[in-house]
Amino acid sequence: MIFAIFSFFFVVFNSTLFAQISLSFEPLYDSSRIQFTKELPADSNQISIETLRFYISDISLFQNDSQVIHVVNSYHLVDLSAGQAQTLDLDITQKLDFNVLKFNLGIDSLTNVSGALSGDLDPTQGMYWSWQSGYINFKLEGKALTCTTRNKLFQYHLGGYMHPYNALRTIELTVQASEPISISLDLNKILSLIKPSQTPEVMSPGTSAMMISNIVAVSFK
């Protein structure tokens, strides 16, 4: 009995020692071209970013091909609008060996039809469409010198959960089992592929949202 209690505490103690696995999301960008400011800077910068927020969900870790852990109900709102990295603590309480991270960019269709939810999923987070039900998976807003829109604005609100316009994307990355696991989002790549001057606004589900979601999905590394 004493042994059982002892080993219980040992396990608890041991797991808390090695417990926390966290993810660090960092925006990657060429600072001579892109700045995280509300207004377009007067100098040579060509792009300013005011908002960069996205949901990640359904996180799992793999060692080669076998799943090590699947974090249940993992829905996180990542906000990189300040241009700084953001770290998320995952609800994992054991030491694990892994080399692959898998997560969804966005919110699954079941959650999209589940009514009002709390925490990161609360509609007050500004990541929920009002005129048509559904979460905004990814939001990128800013200004570009090349945009001919009013105030040179570009706005991408990507989402859509209904067939054939499901904008959810699964991302699989080879990662180091470091603390935290660092993931970068390459904004140079995203903006050079989208070309804000040609497509300045995508704010509803459809083919454009699907295409830009593909671009964002391949820009994580």
Partner: peptide, 28 residues
């Protein structure tokens, strides 16, 4: 059928510029 669940129905008129022209975070 733009709204898929009764719980999120009220968001539409609250945010609509022609109806209540408000924001749920400001309501809260």
């Amino acid at each position: 059928g733009a709204v898929n669940h009764l719980d999120v129905q009220a968001l539409a008129p609250i945010h609509n510029k022609l109806e209540m022209d408000e924001d749920i975070s400001n309501v809260v």
